[in-house]
Computed example of a mutant assay.
Amino acid sequence: MLVAEGYLFELERRGRLQAGTFVPEVALENPNALKELHREFLDCGTDVIEAFTYYAHREKMRLIGKEGLLEPLNRAALSIAKEVAQEAKGEPPLVAGNLSNSNIYKPGDAQSEKMVRSMFEEMLIWSAEAEVDFVIAETFYHLGEAALALEMIKKYNLPAVVTFGLYAQGILSDGFTVEQACQRLEDMGADVVGMNCFRGPATMLPHIAKIREKVSCPVAALPVPYRTTPSEPTFFHMHDHWASCRLPNNMTFPTALDPFLLNRYETADFAQKALDMGVKYIGLCCGCCPVHIRTMAEQLGRKPPASRYSPNMKKHFLFGDDPGLLFTREDLRGKA
């Protein structure tokens, strides 16, 4: 299964969402922009349209002083995802509801657990009423919070994909390794377990390999498309030593990561490596754009509708070798 994510970063790049707060108000303020991104991902080969409710939970809405928009925003995002899915020609994509890290969970704190459970439940009620095919619960850095999300998803009898974001320390915030956490979730009934966000392919795949060894259910791998390294394993602390200007707070995250973006062929290489590991749920997270998904789809042997626009250099004036060209590469050699 190929899954396009990364709505926060891509819509921010398009000027439709604010970096930092990262609240998906676009579902209400500019629904056509969200529809268009869904359509682009669909044309490029995604098997899933994920309702854009990442960070559309009560805590984020409280922070921006707009709790009254919580339900309208969630229902709008779910409706938009369903609408675009119904436009698909041939077999329609699956539609997923979405839960995300709350940023208020505290291990062993009964009050925070109660608040998080309540936040998840209200979003799941709306997802269930929208008749989503499954729910993606993602970017958890505590096993405890991921377990709460899974508990609530199963309460509504929905299939669950649950993934972790792993910080640079290489261990979850409540002390578990990511493979231990995935084992626990599988035992609790998760349908798919794995990782998303924070890490690029180079620093996520070694952990994915460990997860694949420990669980029998399908494994998910959705890195960010950035060139993370062992010395800078997540995109939170990447340094641009070649920047010619001062960056805000001297940080590349989240608005100056451009020099580290993987090219489309590197993302195709990631898809193949994940497939070779036995990963069955493959995608990209923050930083993903439609052309990444198209190239990954083609690497996996598919030809999505957007493949009609895949590169074809044969007719290029400088690099092509089409017999219809009036001048050949040899004629132009040394002139460009």
Rank of each mutant, 00 (worst) to 15 (best):
A77V: 14
F140C: 11
Q183P: 00
H239P: 01
T267N: 12
Y141T: 11
E131H: 15
K66H: 04
M238A: 01
P107V: 11
P218K: 07
N74L: 10
D133F: 13
Q86L: 08
L11M: 05
Y281R: 12
T139P: 11
E10C: 00
A130T: 12
G68Q: 14
K214E: 10
G6F: 00
V95I: 11
L166F: 01
A220F: 10
K60V: 00
D109K: 02
M188V: 02
S79Q: 13
S173M: 11
I136F: 14
I64D: 05
K315I: 12
A137I: 08
V215S: 09
K214V: 14
G283D: 13
P230A: 05
A51E: 05
K335T: 10
A243V: 09
A202Q: 13
R16Y: 08
T229C: 11
E266S: 07
S231F: 01
G90R: 03
E138R: 08
G144V: 09
Y156T: 07
M61W: 02
A202W: 01
A271D: 09
T267A: 13
E232L: 10
R294W: 09
E67C: 02
A110N: 06
S102D: 06
L158Q: 09
E50S: 10
R264V: 15
I49V: 07
C182T: 03
M61D: 01
Q86W: 02
A149G: 06
I293Y: 04
A220K: 08
M313E: 15
I171S: 03
E25A: 00
Q86G: 14
S216W: 01
L166V: 14
G175I: 00
S310R: 15
A85P: 08
T53Q: 00
M195S: 05
E5M: 07
G108V: 09
D43C: 12
L69G: 00
R212F: 06
T252K: 13
C286E: 08
K335R: 13
V219C: 08
M277V: 10
L318Q: 09
G278C: 08
F120S: 04
P31T: 02
V178L: 02
G20E: 03
A181N: 01
F319T: 14
L99E: 06
T163S: 09
R264C: 11
T177G: 00
L2I: 09
G189L: 05
E25W: 03
F260V: 12
D321L: 01
I293S: 03
P206D: 04
Q169S: 05
R75A: 02
